[in-house]
């Protein structure tokens, strides 16, 4: 299965390539900065959920192969979240530090997004074999925080929307069964 990782890598890059291509060709509509923020945020969340799903699949089926993709999906999710944050700082706020600090202070959804992002950052940094060995049992505990990061990101999504967010409802509907399955004892 030498082709598995490269093809998943390519698949995970497609949304970004598509986004860049649309951006270059005026395909992101009247408010391209907002559109880019939305797409990047949603892809971060989707990849996180996909990673969780593979993890659960592996856990309950004993089939190990999905586990090999876990790290790549997680790092891609982090990359999209990082770009989401960078677009916010550069294009959206234009490095306006007072405005960003005000956002952090007065808008809980930004703080919640940042909390989710910091968890993803810690996971990305410690995602190497080296760190896994170094942290030992604590590594697993740290990486279980993804079950905190995902609901935080979903809450962030709910709070940005002016009314009910259909996407966030779908994410919730996917996350809850994954969480329940994670809490069930492992069969294999």
């Amino acid at each position: 299965m030498r082709w598995l990782k490269p093809s998943v890598f390519l698949l995970c890059s497609l949304p970004l390539l598509w986004l860049v291509w649309s951006g270059l060709h005026g395909g992101l509509g009247a408010n391209p900065i907002e559109a880019a923020m939305h797409e990047l945020g949603h892809w971060a969340l989707r990849l996180l959920l996909l990673g969780l799903a593979l993890n659960i699949l592996s856990r309950h089926s004993g089939w190990r192969r999905p586990m090999q993709l876990r790290r790549m999906l997680g790092l891609f999710a982090f990359a999209y979240a990082l770009l989401h944050l960078l677009v916010y700082i550069t294009l959206d706020q234009f490095f306006d530090l007072p405005a960003i600090l005000e956002d952090l202070r007065f808008r809980p959804y930004i703080l919640i997004g940042l909390s989710a992002w910091l968890i993803l950052l810690a996971m990305a940094i410690t995602s190497t074999r080296h760190w896994q060995r170094r942290l030992g049992r604590r590594w697993a505990r740290l990486h279980r925080l993804v079950y905190v990061a995902v609901p935080l990101a979903i809450t962030h999504n709910f709070m940005v929307a002016k009314t009910i967010s259909p996407e966030a409802m779908v994410y919730t509907a996917l996350f809850i069964p994954l969480l329940i399955l994670r809490l069930l004892p492992r069969r294999a």
Binding site: V20, P32, A36
Partner: peptide, 8 residues
Amino acid sequence: LLLPGLLA
């Protein structure tokens, strides 16, 4: 990265 076309 995104800009030229964003404003095209």
